[in-house]
Design a binder for these strands. Structure first.
Length: 481
RNA sequence: GGCGGUAUCGUCUAGUGGUUAGGACGGAUGGUUCUCAGCCAUCAAGCCGGGGUUCGAUUCCCCGUACCGCUACCA
């Protein structure tokens, strides 16, 4: 499709955890690169020493890795590239597009505020543009530390967006923004241009909150005289309250979804459908399939609200897509962590764990649901659900439980059909409804009123455990009276 | 306030100058079952408003409105 393979990047800033908006931008970049046989790289935008926190870097990288968005080159850190920026800043000054500005932050702030009050566009008034060489020299000699601003050219700035088509902005609307701080470090809009250029980035796919930045960056590209990449601005992901998801608003990091039992494949699948569409009625795709069908032409321009319930529904589908073996592998550490069992106990019971997975697979929406729903398969120290106890453990249940336990004990083999036959026989002999046996038995062996089909459940639980639990319950019921 | 973008069920979306406007999540109802979940079936729910253009606009254009974003020596 593209003559030369594209190279794209995701450039998170470590001022918080990786949130879904950034994760999805990363995903689109990744899919675009993989679909076209190009490269996907990661760059950490930590030029702002005030806000960047090194402790966020690892979690961000972990989240990217968890999502399975493998990158192709070593991660680039802006904080380690100041020499490169300095070099390009020099070039930039030589182009004549930059000028020193000595205005103080306070002056600027008050002017801005005043402009706002007078309902004018609060752009920089170019006070320092008219400074003579001598004046500049004098200020510099006096030890004043200037910032460097871009002198915005006149006229319209235009580019063709992958998502929104032709976009135009009058440079009147853009102010002479700062490219270098008074301490000599460069700001975002300058660093990004230098990075994208030197890294050979061909396509920049990012959130549409960057559209204004794109126009600014275009000016820097032009001043530097370097090739401009193709830009594509994807819509924002909004929270259910329609606010943009962001670190500032304390939105969930992607890692939290992992901790809550969401599968990376489900996350990717769900995110891929926010602002992009395969244009079919199918919704469930694996990462591999997404790579195959991804086409940036199908990107939307409208913002999308993030719906955790739909994510959960996707998660369920992806759980169903996983093998029992893989699910068991994921489940084991969670059961141990929750304290329901030990590594040692589980080691010799892999088949048992797999059988439990099979039993619950269709009933869960999150990996963590397995743990809660199936804990009595591992934890023998459960208590009886209070309401169910009242409803199902009647005085006469004790005897039924004991008799049923005796008959179960005599069964060989202890299978679904044998269990059902034994239970049916007892129900007929005693002329009581099956429910009178089934419900107390379920409560006896699990402690809870709801769960998988009883016969399957007992068969998996195993004869000794079932019999023991039923007798224990019978005793408990007698003790109640 | 200025500038920009966007507008199809509650949400994610498909789609068309003439369609019963399709799917999914969620919701409701019924069925299946020992329970819950699931599964099956059925239903409710949408083209932001107003002007044009046109034989005909949800679709094209304009205006309005709403929402979102940007408007830093943040990224």
């Amino acid at each position: 499709m593209t003559a030369t393979p594209p190279k794209v990047r995701i450039a998170p800033s470590p001022s918080g955890y990786l949130h879904v908006g950034t994760a999805r931008a990363a995903l689109f970049n990744y899919l675009f690169a993989r679909h076209n046989g190009g490269k996907f790289v990661v760059r950490i935008e930590d030029t702002d020493v005030e806000r960047s926190k090194t402790e966020y870097i690892e979690p961000i990288i972990d989240a990217l890795r968890w999502l399975g968005l493998e990158w192709d080159e070593e991660i680039v850190y802006q904080s380690k590239r100041s020499d490169i920026y300095a070099e390009y800043l020099k070039k930039f000054m030589e182009s004549g597009q930059g000028y020193y500005c000595f205005c103080s932050k306070e002056t600027l702030d008050s002017k801005r505020q005043k402009a706002r009050e007078e309902k004018r566009n609060p752009r920089y008034d170019r006070t320092c543009l008219t400074l003579t060489k001598e004046e500049i020299r004098a200020k510099l000699d006096a030890g004043e530390k200037p910032v460097i601003r871009v002198k915005m050219p006149d006229g319209d700035i235009q580019y063709d967006d992958m998502v929104s088509g032709k976009l135009t902005r009058s440079s009147e609307e853009l102010e002479d923004f700062v490219v270098a701080r008074s301490d000599g470090s460069v700001t975002y809009n300058f660093a990004v241009v230098v990075d994208d250029h030197t890294m050979g980035i061909t396509h920049v796919i990012r959130g549409n909150d960057h559209i204004t930045n794109t126009f600014k960056q275009l000016v820097v590209y032009k001043a530097l005289g370097v090739e401009v990449p193709v830009f594509g601005h994807v819509p924002m992901i909004l929270r259910p309250d329609k606010k943009k998801v962001s670190k500032r608003l304390g939105d969930k990091g992607v890692g939290e979804f992992r901790d809550e039992g969401i599968l990376p494949e489900a996350m990717i699948n769900y995110l891929s459908l926010l602002g992009w569409s395969p244009k079919t009625d199918r919704e469930i795709y694996t990462k591999k399939e997404l790579i195959e069908i991804f086409n940036p032409d199908n990107l939307n321009a409208a913002n999308a609200v993030f719906d955790p319930e739909k994510l959960e529904a996707f998660n369920r589908e992806h759980i169903l897509l996983m093998s029992d073996h893989d699910l068991a592998t994921q489940l084991a550490p969670l059961l141990i962590e929750a304290g329901y069992t030990s590594k040692y106990w589980l080691e010799t019971r892999w088949e048992y764990l797999r059988a439990v997975v099979t039993l619950f697979k269709e009933r869960v929406r999150r990996i963590s649901d397995f743990v809660e729903q199936s804990k009595y398969f591992f934890d023998f120290d459960y208590t009886y659900d209070e309401a169910a106890d009242k409803k199902r453990f009647k005085p006469e249940s004790a005897d039924v439980l004991d008799e049923m336990a005796n008959r179960f004990e005599a069964l060989n083999p202890f299978t679904h059909d044998a269990i059902e036959a034994a239970l049916t026989a007892l129900s007929e002999e005693r002329e009581i409804g099956k429910g009178k046996i089934i419900h107390p038995t379920r409560l006896a062996v699990s402690g809870v009123p709801a769960g998988p089909g009883l016969y399957d459940m007992l068969a998996v639980l195993g004869q000794p455990a079932v019999v023991e639990r039923m007798r224990k319950a019978a005793e408990y019921v007698r003790g109640k009276a």
